[in-house]
Design a binder for these strands. Structure first.
Lengths: 225, 225, 225, 225
DNA sequence: TATGAATGAGCTTTCATTCAT
DNA sequence: AATGAATGAAAGCTCATTCAT
């Protein structure tokens, strides 16, 4: 009935993508619109009618491809994560010393978040839902985490070189970087209301980007306890 | 018609609250339940019926006291922020040197968040709504931010003492601490799904609490650029 | 329980009204406000809460004095009719010839309606309700109709004098005058929307007042069929 | 979402309506029932549930086609006016002399009203609402008024012929005729309660119909002031 | 594949009315 | 006589979902 409900991979049927089948176009288009809607309003706040209206198809198609609202949301979530992972795989810090490599990773993570506001909001929404969809997603299980893995490799290298403290956990550092980058965007509305500072203002952005690098490096290069 | 729609203050008419008027009990009870519901499901996901049912009153009373769903949500949000502020005011780090004071602040902030999971979730919800309620709340405008102000004072002291770098902004540090503490809780579901680590596990919690202190101190005590 | 639910007479406890009892003031005030509300919104559209709020008393009093919404509406309707009757009784056309007397009656009726827009609207509302309250009102039964009775006397006089046609019914003439005066006000909104003419504009008002007199006289003085 | 919210035209796709699309049937049916309900109870008194129940559809469809209660009411009002206009267009008094033509118009207007009690009541309701819907209706703006226009032509003819007084305004005459015909029906309940006369009784009806013609003619043929 | 029409369950909100004091 | 709080029933409206073609 439903064509391929869980397969969210883009249809690249060869080294060169010749022609998308019409169904893929439709599917793709729906996902695009749904991503914006769910990111904008959250799961409960998003409206199937609204999504359908902004699509070049009809509501029936949403159900044809994605079964129900939940299926559509899950597909959106999965695609968003897969895309981000894709980008992370492009990060290349070979040739940099540990310190500069870490700084580069922090910087790139900072920018990646800035460039994907919808993703940030989807993640917030999914956490409001207590991760019920991401935790059951097969598409997202064991796909690894390039960013964290890269970070781990650099840390090990830096520790071997004797420049980084040895009592650090890579995942903790990753969490720290993520928290800084995510919070700045996800919580910017309440932050601005309380402190009158727009964290996305270019002036603040640049300062915060350096600060993140400085802080991570300061921490990593400080002596172990 | 509506009794006092914007007043969210608790009715403590003296050192010992002798007898709440019944209306305050009702109001209070509604707010309590609504806080849980909105924290649990978000704004759009929360159900007025559900809230009413768990209250010792009827649905009608929610509207009597809070006008509509939005009014109730706003009251919940305001009360939650006011309570947090209250707690922050209790933080006392007088008598500690700058370094230990900062570490104490980070530690207490860490714990305060841990103890208020509903608050964390409400803030996420409000940010999904782009802060539309907090930014228009009179109750929350210009009530200051004890935590940030305290931090500012300690930083200045440390800088005067020559132990802290001079190119730091107190609000940036506050944001860093907040992001760490908030993210660990607000994003723990997706984090666990992706990395298989429960950030609220006591073992991780303790390590992360120290790490936060170490990192902030490492940063503050590193030389200015 | 209810003090005197159907008695709408003003409390004149002697030749000179010395002091209204407080309860009468309250009652009076409620009726005043309710008249405006029912005239403004109709029976179903009027809101008990709204009326209570604009009153110097509480909602409970409305029920105390008037039992329920319907009772209040009925009291409003009765008082309005009684007041109008009162005014009609003041019309004095003795000393005028039949033609001038009729013209005076038409003119005064025209003005009376103009001066009582609330009354006009209440009558519309009561007719939407198919007269269910006026037809069961004891206060309004057999109270006669001064205007129609006066008209009848003048007509008879004019017919005796040979100036008026003899095949006219006084009630028909009364209806004609009323319809003209009522319609001009009650239907002015749809009339203006359709024809772009505001029938209450002074310029139109003066012309229409004369026209009514002319027309009635032209009819009455034209030969019988 | 909503199919064609403002189009109230009947779907006559040729000289013989072969087959209505089902949606038109539904729409049509809803409008029919809603007309009766709004005419019966007024705007605020009408119940969406009641209308839906008497329809062959569900409540949801009312909203699907007409957005909300107000939209449905407006559609009812517009359709009612358009139908009346349609009927007025059929009036043909060519070939009659001015006097007989005017008498015919008065007579037909009288009968048209008698045949459309729902319309009369809807107009009352709309005037209680101060014409807020008719005044903003695009469907009813500049659709002209056949009855008034015809009247105007006849008057001009009669004036040219020297049989009608020259100081009359066609719209005034139209208003006079309308007021007589409308009042007799719209205010019949209060009239009967006050005077014990049922204005719709056939005996009164016939007499009043002639009286209206006599009066208008008497006025028009009387000398100018 | 595609589409307008339809649906039922449930949502937020309102209203006249009454209770406790 | 007066009042704030409370209530149940029902009102208007919305939503995800499915049917018929």
């Amino acid at each position: 009935m439903s064509p391929r409900a869980t397969d969210t991979s883009d249809d690249t049927s060869g080294p060169t993508v010749k022609r998308r089948r019409n169904s893929d176009l439709t599917r793709h288009n729906i996902l695009e619109v749904a991503t914006e809607e769910f990111a904008d309003k959250g799961f409960a706040g998003a409206r199937i009618d609204e999504i359908a209206q902004r699509t070049h198809t009809t509501k029936r198609m949403l159900y044809y491809y994605f079964t129900d609202k939940e299926g559509l949301y899950k597909a959106v979530l999965e695609q968003s994560y897969l895309r981000i992972r894709e980008r992370e795989r492009d990060v290349d810090v070979e040739g940099l010393g540990p310190i500069e490599a870490i700084r580069a990773i922090a910087s790139l993570t900072f920018d990646h978040h800035e460039e994907n506001p919808d993703f940030i909001r989807l993640v917030s929404t999914e956490n409001i839902l207590r991760g019920e969809h991401i935790s059951t997603s097969e598409a997202l299980s064991n796909l690894g985490n390039p960013a964290a893995e890269l970070l781990s490799r650099i840390l090990t290298r830096g520790q071997a070189d004797g420049v980084f403290r040895t009592d650090v956990d890579a995942l903790d550092v990753h969490m720290t970087i993520s928290s800084f980058c995510v919070f700045r965007l996800s919580n910017r509305y309440t932050f601005e209301a309380l402190f009158g500072r727009d964290l996305t203002d270019p002036q603040h952005r640049e300062r915060l980007r350096s600060m993140l690098g400085d802080m991570i490096i300061a921490y990593l290069t400080s002596p172990s306890r």
